[in-house]
Amino acid sequence: MGKTVIRAKNFSHFFGSVPALKNINLDIFQNEIFGIIGPAGSGKSTFLRALNRLNDLIPNSWPEGILEIGGRDVYAPGTSVVELRRRLGMVFATPVPLPRSIFENIVFGARMAGEKNRGRLTELVADCLKKTALWEEVMDRLETSALKLSGGQQQRLCLARILALRPEFIMLDEPTSGLDPISTMKIEETLRKLQAEYTIILVTNNTKQAARVADRTAFFLNGELIEVDTTERIFSAPSDQRTNDYISGKFG
């Protein structure tokens, strides 16, 4: 078991008066792949978006309790949201390449951070594309539109775009929900390789995916954390009946 890098203590998040997350208590360890499963509306995405404060964009929403990354409260006054979001790269459910070239997509974050050196940017692009196994496929057409890539390639591009931020965490919000099995497999392989360098939080509505790649898995239901344990335990001997019902497909 590694060092705790993310810790939620009685953490709740409200949209209006409705809590989307209720009193979440959990720890995420360094360099693990942490899976979050649960049916739609269980608060999985809200949890991710609380971590990088993307929930801030939604009017009339607020957090309660403590959510720490590296021992520091994410919602403490004076926290730089820009810096926070660079530390926690996020991949969305639908791949969203920006209407720019492949190259410009990858360096987008770096450019916003002020990097102008063409050589360093080129190096960054090659490095990130290699890590996501996309380099061979696109190395000769970096200047073409990213919108021309296939869905699976687009999602790996989004992953590469995040690596270019040099983050500590990679958060994925149902990253393969729209992808075919082969593209899904490629993403999962990439995640396993990336685990050595990053802490990965994988939200998925595909329980089998969590079983395949996650070290530990949390089960969310209606905004509550039902249980969290090693993936092996969750899928072989869950302690809560609801977890068992969910993973065996009785609801979801």
Binding site: N52, L54, L57, V82, E83, R85, R86, G89, M90, F92, T94, V96, L98, F108, G109, M112, A113, C158, R161, I162, L165
Partner: peptide, 12 residues
Amino acid sequence: AYREVSFSLGGT
């Protein structure tokens, strides 16, 4: 989604 991506990549 474009805005979300930009914000999530540390854009102001």
